[in-house]
Design a protein around this nucleic acid. Structure first.
Lengths: 161, 161
DNA sequence: CGAATCTAGTACGATAATGGTACTAACAAT
DNA sequence: ATTGTTAGTACCATTATCGTACTAGATTCG
């Protein structure tokens, strides 16, 4: 009567393991006040700033939640809001200097995770894993407009740590 | 300056897509009051009952949070607590008849998700994906004591929908 | 042009989830 | 019997989630 663990749940385990490592790395580097929810939002901020609704979309939360998180991050000095020149309604949420300080930490830990996973699976299976995950992610979220082909280059999109 | 989406984040997308589908399927079948956090907890309940600390561990939440969720689920009639014959301190959290009613719905949707993903990737790559996810999950959580080998059979463990 | 429509951001508020500290009762070890 | 450990729980403060709804700037189209 025992059943297998679903693929979705396996993804949850992997995701949470990675997330915990990144948040822990940030905490150890002095960014101890960043919560997981905030980290998920920060991960969606492009280097040139991102709108609130886009952040909400990327983190799979309603914009009210994203707003609350951004308010907290702004109060903590991690992000700032600048007007969006292309749309008077919109504002771009950008990392402050303080926020950018955490980026290398997150990126480094992320790279370490990828390296650890690749060491476990081997480069070939790791690549296959990423490719498969990409296809599933795209089918779930068609406007991810993602490359993953090393040949192509997208002027837009892409997430941070 | 754009970076790739991390494998962990891709897992997040896949996981959330699956989770949303299951919660939506439950809602449509009349189980509209089950939240995502509750569903994650329910997914860890074995058919013969599971202890609170084990549920907390599986869902990656502290036991206080698990307690609050169980209280809510108990009040809503989804689970019940029975004494654990093997340990006077412990209690087993079990699905009630009402709770078991949602199981087929969740299991069916889960199967549909797996089928959809397999249709997308093909059976070979899907199997490779699961195998890779399993290895990563095991490395992150060594006491997952998981089979995945069709030959072996574990008397314990295994999650529900 | 101007009215209807849409969209980005925000406010307010109610509920749910998270997680710290700490207590009790039962078990385990010596 | 004393000590240490573990399961469950209570209490509580904070954070996160998300519904309803408003404002102001865009967009569409007659």
């Amino acid at each position: 009567m025992e059943r297998e663990i679903s693929s979705g749940w396996l993804m949850f385990i992997g995701f949470r393991a990675a997330e915990d490592r990144i948040v822990a790395a940030l905490a150890e580097a002095g960014y101890a006040d960043i919560t997981r929810a905030q980290a998920r939002l920060l991960a969606g901020i492009d280097l040139d700033g991102t709108r609130l609704v886009v952040l909400a979309d990327r983190a799979r939360i309603p914009k009210q939640t994203a707003l609350a998180l951004v308010n907290g991050l702004e109060a903590a000095g991690y992000v700032e809001r600048v007007p969006d020149p292309s749309d008077g309604r919109a504002r771009l949420i950008r990392l402050t200097a303080h926020g950018r300080g955490g980026l290398p930490v997150a990126i480094a830990e992320e790279a370490r995770i990828e390296a650890d996973w690749q060491a476990l699976l081997g480069i070939r299976r790791m690549r296959a894993l990423r490719r498969a995950l990409w296809e599933l992610a795209l089918s779930a979220d068609p406007h991810l407009h993602a490359p993953e082909d090393p040949q192509r280059e997208e002027p837009e999109g892409g997430h941070n740590g």
